[in-house]
Amino acid sequence: MAAGTPDLAAPREAYRRKKSTRTNYELYGWVFMRASGVVLLVLIFGHLFVNLMVGDGVHAIDFAFVGGKWTSPFWQVWDLLMLWLAMIHGTNGVRTIINDYAERDTTRLVLKLALYLAFTIVVVAGTLVIFTFSPCPVGADPSLLPSVCFS
């Protein structure tokens, strides 16, 4: 090569994408939204059907109804999965929206901190309720309890 030749890439050299990030975090988020979305469609449609369409629908929902459902591990796992997937899916969606519309750095930071705080409180509270719930609390009015408490 003669001196002064401009430094050009060889013809037909493979294109190399320059990475602007260190991790694949956003890619995993993108994949998660699609994978969890499909699972949530099944979980939530099932939830809505059982709670709103069967029997008296919304009028049938009371402590005894929820207590009766959660005596079955099937509904415990269903609701736990729904809680976690929906909260992560929803939090990641709102995170995207905050990143899109909040232009000031401090606004973005504050909104996202509030979002992550809400996520933590709701997921921790919901998980504890599913695992520590008793369908037949001691001393409760028997007329409000599910039938399993008396069999």
Binding site: F63, V66, G67, V122, A125, G126, F133, P137, A140, L144
Partner: peptide, 18 residues
């Protein structure tokens, strides 16, 4: 969803509250 998880969490308080 945020409201719905919190209202359901009332089953842990008492049948009357829920």
């Amino acid at each position: 969803l945020l409201v719905h998880v919190l209202d359901t969490a009332l089953v842990r308080v008492s049948p009357e509250a829920y």
